[in-house]
């Protein structure tokens, strides 16, 4: 029966830690079955292992591991990471978002339209003198303010 543990890592190094842990686990013959690094969970990885001892074996000497979170989590608690909802489903019209990739990176914008099927949103940049609607992938924005726009 596998159990789920949470390991704290340096932010943005989750993938590196997952790779290194899998190599160390194989080398030390630790009963670690899988390592999960969801995009929503920054600075943590979820490890599926047989026991705490196996977990400890698999993090030995791995850089960017900052510690273990005490206790364990149940499968129900991590299930929602496995079938992530589309990013567009979590964004509504009027939300203020920050564009996090592409030529408009760092710009704040107001959401004008959401296309859930295509996972795209149409936004207008706040600081632009002339407002031009631009369409970006919903994964390329971060919600800053959930207040819907007051006209």
């Amino acid at each position: 029966m596998s159990r789920f543990f949470v390991v704290k890592t340096t932010a943005n190094q989750e993938r590196l830690v997952a790779n290194m842990m899998s190599m160390v686990a194989k080398k030390n013959k630790a009963n670690v079955y899988s390592i999960l690094a969801p995009k929503e969970l920054k600075g943590y990885v979820i490890v599926e292992a047989e026991s705490t001892e196996d977990l400890v074996k698999s993090i030995r000497g791995v850089p960017h591991v900052k510690g273990l979170v005490r206790g364990e989590v149940s499968f129900n608690e991590i299930e929602h990471f496995l079938t992530p909802r589309k990013a567009a489903e979590q964004i509504k019209e009027g939300y203020t978002v920050e564009i996090i990739s592409g030529p408009f990176k760092g710009e704040l914008a107001v959401v004008k339209r959401v296309d859930e099927a295509r996972n795209e949103i149409t936004v207008e940049l706040i600081e632009a003198v002339v407002s031009i609607p631009i369409t970006v992938k919903a994964d390329h924005v971060r919600v800053v303010d959930k207040k819907e726009e007051v006209e």
């Binding site: 390592i35 299930e79 992530p84």
Partner: peptide, 21 residues
Amino acid sequence: KNWYGYLVVIDPEKSEIAKKL
């Protein structure tokens, strides 16, 4: 190139996550 979330499966027979997916 556009993929998100990361999962390393070591033992797919024993892993519940691998079974679920």
